[in-house]
Structures are given as C-alpha cells and as structure tokens.
Design a protein around this nucleic acid. Structure first.
Lengths: 334, 334
DNA sequence: ATGAAAGCGCTAACAA
DNA sequence: TTGTTAGCGCTTTCAT
C-alpha cells in the first residue's frame, strides 16, 4: 500500500533544510553539500517521495507529457509502436498521450488543442500518411515511418524509419536465392516513402542478380488490406501463369495473397514463393507461415524516445534522419 | 496552427469580468447571468481557450488522469482494450497512462507510485491474472476480465467481463449443431474466472444436448500460447482418434491446434471442427479461418469508462458486476 | 551552501 | 450575481 501524499515541504522539515535545498538536490542543479544531499536523498527514499508533477509542470510551464499521434490504432504495427513508445517514455518519467486521428484532420486538430492544455513538451507522429504541415505545436517532434513533405527536416524535427530499401532488397534477393526468376511486386503507390523505398530495393535486387525488370510484374495498389491482397493476387495469377515469386510491401497484403493462391490450388512454396514486410503476428500462424522482413518496433521506439528526450532538453541533434536495420525472417512461404 | 497560450485572466479581461466568473462559467457551478455566460463563452470559443489542466489539477489535488494497468501489451486483446479505453477517456478530457507490468508485482508497484505523482483519480485493471489486493491507490477502480479475489466488490470497485458462460455455451452448441458428438475442451486451469466460466458453458451445452460428459476430453493447461496449443493438440489426437470437435478457450491455442492438425493430415472442418475464443486478428487470416467467440472490446471499454467517470464524480454505482454479451463468428474451421 | 519569497493558472471560500 | 483572495507544490531568482 502506498503512503499518504508527502510534499517537498515535509521532506525539507524532516531533513532540517529548506524546500529550496531539497528541490536542488532532486533536480541536481545549484549547489549543496555532499552531506545534505545524502541526508535528503535518504529521506526521499525512505518515504518513497515523488514530486508532484502537476505542480512542477505549472511552475516550469512545461509538462512531462508527450503526445503520440497515430492514424489508426487498430493497425497492429501502429499499436505496437505506440505502446512501446509509451513504455519507453514512462522510464524517463514522461507520460504519453496516444491520440488516434482515424485519418481525420479535424480530429487531429482537436487533439492538438487538447495536448496544448496538457502542456506537452514533445510530439511523435507515427503514420504512413501524408503530413502536410509540420507539427502545429511548437515543440520538438519526431516523425516515424513517414517523412513530412513540406519542410526539410531541421532543428526540432527528426525522422526515423526502417531501412526500407535494404528490406526490399533482402526480400527479393531471398526469392532469387531460392531460385525464383519471375518475381512480381505489389506495393502501395503514392507518396508513401517507405513503400517506394521497398520498391527501390526490389529493383536493386533484380539488377544485381542480372534479372530482367518487367513492368508487367509491378503492381501498384492504393489500399493495404487483406481483401485487396486477395483480389490483386487472383487477377495477377490469372494474367501471368509463370510467376514463381511475389514480394508484397505489407504482410497483410501477402496474407490475402496466401488465401487467393490456396484457393487456386497452387502450392506455396513449391510452385510460388511469397515474401511480406512488417512481420505482423498473423504471419507466424498463417499456413504456410509467411517469410517476411521484420521491422524492429522496439529499436525504432527506443531511438525515437532517446532523440526526443534529448531534443526536449535543448540538446540539438546533429542528424535529422535515422534508419533502423531490418532483417529477413524465413518461414514456410519460401 | 494553434495560438499562443492564453490564461483565465486574459479571458476575464477581455470579457470585462473577474477570473472567478469565468471559472464559474467554465465549470458550470456557482451563479452567473445568462448574459455574462454568453459573452464569456464567445470569447473562449474565439480564442480556442483551454484551461491549463496542470494548474487545475494542482488546485483540486486531483488530476484528470486515469491509470490503465495491463500485464502484457503484446497480447492483442489487452492492447486493443487499452487503446480503446484510452480513446474513450480522451473524449471525457481524461488522459490515460498505460502501464505494462510484464506480470511483475515489482514493476506494478513502481508504476503505482508513479501514478500517485500524477494524481490519478481512477484506475483500470485489465488482466487475466490474479489480483491479490484491491488497488493500492485509494481511487475508484474498474477491473476488466478478471475479478479480484480478496475483496468482494463494493463501492469504488466495479468488475466487467464478457458473458463467458454464454460464450462457452455458444461455441460448443455450435459444434453440436454441426454434428459433433465427441467434443473436447482445452482451457486455462487455475483461478482465472473467465476461462472457468467458458468451461462451465461447455458443460452446459453438452448436458442440454444430452451428450455424455467425458472427463478424458477435458484438457486443462497452464499456458495460453500458440506452441502450447500445438503440443496439446498433437498429444490429444494421438490419444483420442475419434474426436470430432475441439473448443479452445483462447484463439491463440486454437491457432496452434490448426497447425498440429494440418501436420497430421487431418482435414478441418471435414474431419474435425475447431472453435476458439477472443476473435484475434490472426483468426481471420488463418487457414482455415477460425470460428470463434467475439468479445466486444469496444463495448467493454465504453462501459468501463462510463462507469469510471461516474464513480470519479462521486456517483455511487448500484451494481458492481457487469457482463457484456459475446457472439459467435462462424468461419471456415466449422 | 542555503534560505526566503514570488508566482505559475486555477478553484473555492468568503465578501460585497 | 460577481469580485477578491488565499493557497495547491513546485522552481527559481535574489539574498545571505
């Protein structure tokens, strides 16, 4: 059971010093003797004292709060990322407010206004979608997965993503090593940099293996969903019977494909091999389990929080773009 | 773009009244004339003013903050629930702090202590696990999915769960309607009330159909995981070749089973039918897709937040246990 | 090295 | 009906 609320004043009384001194010890600024420090720290520990964050925030006009903006928390990748970020922030005594915008700019503005009233001191955007403006709040901001289009990144803004080109390369190269020669790609078209990069990786792998690049095998799509993956694959296989490998830039598309292929009575991986991207949990259970490119949610989150914390402490970042390695996970579909 | 920070004082000045009056209008307590109200509200809207939550919290010694405690956010059910709760709370201007305990009592205590410093005014526990004590913080608390064992629920404590007995009944009854007669159940043993209730539903369905209850077909287990489901099923099928239906009290177990069954060359649903519980996303993609009992995460979350909000406003609840309906989702595995 | 005191923005007595 | 004022717990000058 947790003890009654104790204040700075209480600690000061017990230590026989003023509240100012206690505050200095806690925040490790100003001067104080080793002795007082020791005494104060002991008392703090003894009573499990924790400064009242609200009072602190009010005083310094900045809360230990960061906003996390995601377009859709039902998407497993976003959800895991948001939760992991929140966890990391908690370790630094920051509270995270996760705002789900449901792709709506209006909702986003409402949330932003709300965040303002919480005195947020940092912002993290996780989104595949277009970000037209930089953050509306004037605070350090991290963009994950998707680079904002307007402004070149600069001080106060950092962009973090997976090594998407490398990921695309790994995926397709793996198919090549497994003997595939007619390799199709299904990717999300548009300005979504992460998917375009994966497409670049595809081209790179093909050319480095000396395989002919065939426009007909490149299928852009607008929606990332199970059903869409299913439909696209049906059509693709109707039109091209000799395809022996497909790279999908998202697992969920590949899952739809697996269903379509199985319905056609084609064997995976014997007759056709499939690689996805993301490593969602369903890819472990599907039959066959899906070979995919694993994005390190944890590493991205750790890096994001680390950078954000340092930016919030006024330390300027020397770099504005960070890439986090990905790796290939080989499963039954290849 | 969001305007510069504006305070109560600013609004008061512009409206030509005192800050007290503005405060009254905002909180709709005390008295004020219709005219002042109108004027003040206009100005507030015009400047998109939002009261500084930190200052408010400091003053009333209660934050608009609620803690959400989950044992494991990588579990899809917990994650979806936590995120949905957070969303609902946001609508009521409450901020949610999601604390992942990783099943560790120590971490939980640390979090609780942290929450204290945020002046939480409510708590939500989402957990399958044993809760030995009621909340360590002296605030209204909602338990989801798992009833605390020590104390009978009473004022300040509410328990919400799915209609688990009904769910178990629906699942097994469905198997019976599909013609199964040798139906096994795999459930989580121990004091986990939700799983025990599903087991009760199993027995109820059997007896109401006049089917003989066979101890040998009841398999308790200690771990809910894909691998465990896989292993149990292998063994079960080795020992009992005539089973034609299995009910798993968690989808993830059933997914493991699907793999084991497919490896044995047995056909689902022709030779054996499978039903799970939870409706995780993987169950949509698996082959075959899994028939399961859907738990209404949204409904549970809505109810939880509604109850918590009213408890935090001192309104006593007349009931302490709430059951949320579940429904059967029929897919390829039956 | 330490203390006194002002004040962050707000709510809630108490006055008027 | 409205205004005045005293803090909530903390950080941060400015003295000492």
């Amino acid at each position: 059971m947790i003890s009654k609320k104790i204040s700075l004043q209480d600690i000061a009384n017990m230590a026989g010093v003023s509240i100012a001194t206690v505050s200095r010890v806690i925040n490790q600024n100003g001067r104080f003797s080793k002795e007082t420090e020791k005494r104060v720290k002991e008392i703090i520990k003894k009573y499990d004292y924790r400064p009242n964050q609200m009072a602190r925030s009010l005083r310094v006009k900045k809360g230990k709060v960061v906003g996390i903006i995601v377009p859709d928390v039902t998407n497993e990748f976003f959800a895991r990322m948001a939760l992991e970020l929140q966890l990391q922030l908690l370790k630094h005594d920051y509270v995270a407010i996760i705002c789900n915008t449901n792709e709506s700019r209006d909702i986003e503005l409402t949330h932003l206004s709300m965040l303002k009233s919480q005195l947020v001191s940092g912002l993290i955007y996780i989104t595949h979608d277009v970000i037209e403006e930089k953050s509306a709040l004037n605070v350090p901001t991290i963009f994950i997965d998707r680079q904002p289009i307007t402004t070149g990144l600069n001080n106060g803004h950092v962009f973090i993503e997976s090594e998407n080109i490398q990921g695309g390369f790994l995926a397709v190269n793996h198919l090549i090593e497994r003997g595939c020669t007619k390799i199709a790609i299904v990717y999300l078209r548009g300005s979504i940099s992460s998917h375009l990069s994966r497409y670049d990786g595809y081209k790179k792998a093909l050319s480095s293996a000396g395989i002919h690049y065939d426009e007909d095998l490149v299928i852009p799509t607008d929606i990332v969903s199970f059903d869409n993956g299913y439909n696209i694959t049906r059509q693709l296989l109707d039109e091209h019977t000799n395809i022996d490998g497909i790279f999908f830039t998202a697992d969920i598309l590949a899952q739809g494909a697996l269903r379509a292929i199985s319905e056609k009575g084609i064997n995976v991986p014997e007759e056709i091999k499939i690689v996805g991207f993301d490593d969602i949990s369903a890819s472990t259970f599907s039959s066959p389990p899906l070979t995919t490119i694993h994005q390190s949610v944890d590493k991205i989150a750790d890096l994001a929080v680390e950078k954000l914390i340092s930016m919030m402490s006024e330390e300027k970042s020397d770099r504005f773009v960070f890439k986090v390695p990905v790796h290939l996970i080989i499963r039954g579909s290849t």
